[in-house]
Simulated assay, not measured.
Amino acid sequence: MKRMVVDGEHFDVIARAGEPGVYDFRWTSGPNEGYGFGSAGHGSDGMTDGELEDAIRNFLSQVDLNTGYIE
């Protein structure tokens, strides 16, 4: 597990066992416990830190600030 802070928001990033290049992101500073998303990189090499940060920023850009969820 990797802990990341992106634009002031905290995430736990977990590589899925048996699925190279696939990650689960848990938004630990968000308003809804256990909420997050999954993402996959291209190929089995995994995602770079920059790619992980981009995935998080993309997720955050879709979140409704009133509910804390993607609507």
Rank of each mutant, 00 (worst) to 15 (best):
K2C: 08
K2G: 04
R3G: 10
M4Q: 08
M4I: 14
D7G: 01
D7M: 09
D7L: 03
G8Y: 01
G8L: 00
G8M: 00
E9S: 12
H10A: 15
H10M: 08
F11T: 00
F11G: 11
D12M: 10
D12V: 09
D12G: 02
V13P: 11
I14M: 10
A15H: 02
A15E: 00
A17C: 09
A17G: 11
G18M: 00
G18S: 01
E19S: 15
P20F: 01
P20H: 02
P20C: 02
G21I: 12
G21F: 06
Y23E: 13
Y23Q: 06
F25I: 04
F25M: 03
R26Q: 08
R26Y: 15
R26L: 08
R26V: 15
S29E: 10
G30W: 09
G30T: 08
G30C: 06
G30E: 09
N32W: 03
G34S: 03
G34F: 12
G36T: 04
F37V: 07
S39W: 05
S39E: 12
S39R: 12
A40G: 03
G41C: 04
G41F: 05
H42N: 07
H42I: 12
H42E: 13
H42P: 06
G43Q: 01
G43T: 04
G43W: 02
G43H: 00
G46P: 13
T48W: 07
D49V: 07
D49E: 15
G50Q: 13
G50Y: 00
E51Q: 15
L52I: 15
E53K: 10
E53Q: 13
E53F: 06
A55I: 10
A55E: 11
A55W: 03
I56R: 11
R57P: 06
R57T: 00
R57H: 11
L60W: 13
S61F: 10
Q62R: 15
V63N: 11
D64C: 13
L65M: 06
N66S: 15
N66W: 06
T67R: 13
Y69E: 11
E71A: 08
E71C: 10
